[in-house]
Structure formats: C-alpha cells, structure tokens
Design a protein around this nucleic acid. Sequence first.
RNA 1: CGGGGUGUGGCGCAGCACGGUAGCGCGCCUGCUUUGGGAGCAGGAGGCCCCCGGUUCGAGUCCGGGCACCCCGACCA
Length: 567
Amino acid sequence: MRASRFLTKTLRQDPGEAESASHRLMLRAGMMTQVAAGVYAYLPLALRSIHKIEQIVREEMDAAGGQEVRMPALHPIEVWAETGRDAAMGDTLFHLHDRRGRELVLAPTHEEVITAVVRANVESYRDLPLLLYQIQTKFRDEPRPRAGLLRGREFDMKDAYSFDTGAEALDTAYQRVREAYRNIFRRCGLPTIEVEADSGAIGGKESHEFIVQAETGEDTVLLSPGGYAANVERATSIPPRAPEGEPLAMEAVDTPGVTTIAALSAFLGVPEAQTLKAVFYAADGEMVLVTIRGDIEVNEVKLRNHLHARELRLATAEESAAAGLTPGYASPVGLSGIQRIGDPTIQQGANFVAGANRPDQHLRNVNYPRDFEVDAIVDVATAQAGDEAPDGTGPLEAVRGIEVGHIFKLGTFYTRTLGAEYTDEEGKLNAIVMGCYGIGITRVLAAAIEQNHDERGVIFPAPIAPFQVHLIALNADNPEVSAQAEALYEELGASGHEVFFDDRVESAGVKFNDADLLGFPVRVVVSPRNLKSGVVEIKRRRDADPTQVAPDAVERTVAGLLAKDDL
RNA sequence: CGGGGUGUGGCGCAGCACGGUAGCGCGCCUGCUUUGGGAGCAGGAGGCCCCCGGUUCGAGUCCGGGCACCCCGACCA
C-alpha cells in the first residue's frame, strides 16, 4: 500500500476526547472514526489488524476442533423471553420493531440461538461432542461506553459454545478451549493472567477470565504469591483478625453525629475491625440486611449470587426507615421480620460496636450470636489487597486489567430451558451439557495497543500488525531514491511481506514520526545519504538503533527481524 | 441513573464575565526555496459558532428548553 493513496492521515495532535492510550493512538493513527458513543467505523488499518486477530482465533479454534458458524444479529424477542434473559439483560438489549410491529432485538450474545440450532441438529450421543464458534458483531446498549474499543456498544466478539454428554466431557472441552485461548493470546502478543471469575446469574459452576494487565482496565484482580488469582468480584481472603476477649455486657453509648465507621472508630477509640456495619439492600424489591465487620466492604456480586437477585441496590432512606432502621445507626440487634445475612467475619472477635437503631447512639460489646441473629452466614466480603490469600501463601496483591476472554461451564440451563436433548446409549433423553467461551476481538486490538506502545506511538506485535514493513523513501522526488524504493517495494511485496510504502513528498521528520506512530514492526529507509553509501537502513520499531545493509540483503534482513517478532 | 465537563473551519483551541457581524496554531490548496526527526517565505480556500425558542435595533456571547459527546461513579455474563 502506498501512503500517497491511503485513505487515512495521521493526526499531529492528540484528539481531545480520548483519554486511554489505545483510544488516543487509534484515533491519531487514523485506524478508526467515531460514529456515535461506543460505535466506530473501522478504517483500513484497524480492519487489517482485526482480520489478523480473527485469523489467529480461527486457526486455534479449528485446531481445538471447532466448527465456525454464523448467527443472525436480529432476534425475535421470543427467543429471549423463553430463557427470561430479556428481563435479565434489561436496558442492555437494543430493541426494535419491524413493519408489522413485531418486536426484535439486536443480539448481544448468542446462547439461545445456538442452542436452538443444536436442538434442531443433534439427536444422539453419537452427534456429540460439538464445539461451534462464531465471530460476529454484538450489540449491547452499555450504560457507559468508554475508552474507544475497550467498551463499545457495537463490537466484534468470538463466541464459542461446547455441547457435551456430561460433566466430564465438558471438562475436557473446557480445558481444550482454555489451551486454545492461551495460544491465541500469546500469538496476539498479549500476556494474560487467568483468574477465577464470577459466572454471573445464569452462569454455571466454573469460570475463568483472561485478563491483560493494564491501568486502564475495568477489572480488579487479586493475586497471591502462590498463584491464586481471582477477580475481586469472586475473590476470597483471610482478613486480619478482630480483637478477641471475654464477652462483656452490652451497653448503649452516646455517639451524636457519628454516622460512619471511620468516625465511630475515632470517636470511641475502637479499631474499625471491632465494629459491625449493617447494610440494607433491596433485592428485586425485597429488603435484605447484611451485617459485616466494619472494616470490610460488602461484595455485591457475591450477595447477588446468593440471593439469586436480578436487581440489587442499596435501599433508599425511605425503605430503610420503613423497615425500622435508622440511617447511620442501623443495627442487626433487635431486628426481625426481614431477611438477615451475616458475613463469617462476625463470628470471630468479640465485643463489637454496632448501631443502636436510634439516632445518636451505638451499642458496645455486641457479640454474635448472643445479641442478634441472622438467617444465614454467607461470605459476602470483598477481598482486599493486603489480606492474607486463601491459599495461605502471603498477602494478596491487586492489579487492574482488561478482560479479553471469558470461559464458562454453563451446564444445562439453556439446553433444559430450550429442550436441547440427546438420546444416550440406553435410549434415555438427557439435556446436553454446555459451555461458552468468549473473546472480545475488537477489545483484543485495543488491549494490545494499551500494552504495546510508547510515547511516540503504537508498537504492534508483528502477528497482528496491519502491515509488517514500513518502507520510507526520503526525498521521494529524487529519481534514484524513488527507483530504489520502488524496487524494494516490489521485491518485499513479491516475497510475501505486507509493505506500507511512504512514497509521499514529505520531510524526513514527518515520515519518521508517522512510522513511529503507526508502529509497524520493521522500518526500511531509502535515502540519498544511504544511497551514496550503497546501503539501506533497517530498524525494528522496538529497537533504538538501525542497521545498514546492502540493497540485495534487505529482504533477507527484514525476514530475519520479523522472525524474531513471530509469536 | 447520580456527579463533573465540553460542543466555534478537517484537528487542537481562544473569543462568552462586559452583545456590535469570528480569530490563533496545525492541517489543506498554489508558487518559490528547503531536504535525515513534525521546514521557510508569499498568496489562497474553508465556519448552519450543536439544535429550537426567547430577549434585543443587533446574539458565538444573555435567558429558557432540548440534543450530542467525554470523564468519574453506579451499572455491565
């Protein structure tokens, strides 16, 4: 491709609206254009990269035994109503109506449809196992699209679905895909951390996320020195112990205007770990009181999973008051008539300070279960960096990251609900056991740039670079330079390299800066100066200094450098 | 949905408090010069100032109402 004929130009200044590195650089490099919030036009550079990522994904999924399919983006609402996920997805679903007034949605994912396909095509255990995958645009009306391709409303995703006869076969499929994912991310130049993940309301038992470490990421994961790794949504920990002691008599204490744990701790001179907080939630309209140690935050994902709640939110002041709670002084002591959940942290330690359920008073020496009851003890604690890891190997460390892949063991929820069954060896009908496996294709591109750039621009991992070689002709209007550059362009192209040829009549600085910004792996420079010395200059984007080679050694040298970057 | 911010040539911004018919840098076009890290000089093109309404002799600027986009949070299989 000749730069002089290329659609896009680079921007000299950072676009004002982009914060994260990938968003900023993709706009500056002319890879994409924004059309609406979270919606982008992919221009040639981005598309070439996306095609390469897709190709890697196809190769690895095929190697894992996958078969590619293509699903509709337009779904009748009934498909979603059958599994109840129209309600579960809520406003995230894009709704539309056809000319007959029939309601349709734009597919945010495809479990329902693929299950229907399998139902129509699978009858016997002899037809299993199956691993089907699709690479398609998905639509989600995200509450807040952000950071360019990191969270869009229209984005490309590879989804794979496994169908097996039982749990054991599912394990095999799960491991096989997991292995494929490791290959995919490695080949995309993306070191990932595999973490235990929350599987969500309708997810199954086991689930892992592939996380690319990045400050701009939306996920927090906790890591132990011994290899424990989990998303904070799911992570467990061993929190610092609360002070112990003989239970003393419970007594009220005046605490005027003291409504936060921090203030309470300071006011009474009691460690936060010796306080209890009572948090009031509305779960699908039902009130739930959670009691947990004061220094620990409630993990709402764990709570939601326990309650099987669709919508979980903090109760409003009115709702709290109606249930007999005093904001700032809420307490599990003496409370009944609503669902009460206690975190295990209330079972260790003694003589806690808790609210008194009346203004300006707390209770000292509150002990569980002597002074209050709960309906269930459930781990709803948010693990924190610094807590002892559950594997006992040391303190947990927190890192931010981008979720580029997620694998789930779904089980039989969809197949039972939608009637996807098979006949086993004994002639009995069973629900097919399902797994699902996603990779955010466009997010992989953004994540790759987040992780591979410097202050000058992108540094593309070679396997997903839009072009392999950036050929620059300095003084392109010089006939000898032009002749040699044209010859090299021809030769490199004929040897199978994808060459971006900067044949523009522009100053050296402009061309070098553009090359650094676009970040293709190998740069080749033809110039009058080099010509005079009988050499051509070659440099990897990641390296500081160029090497000089004879013109007839260019192709060989380029191939050698690219091989170094082959992942 | 809560909080904050921004909408002015292709891009980045100023102008708005104090109303008088739009400006700077970059980019773009033409010519000459220059030529290894975002060149110089000269000339030039390009703007429903987000939209609708109001106030006013007159609105980019004041008032009211919308819309869009960005950031933080909530949310998010």
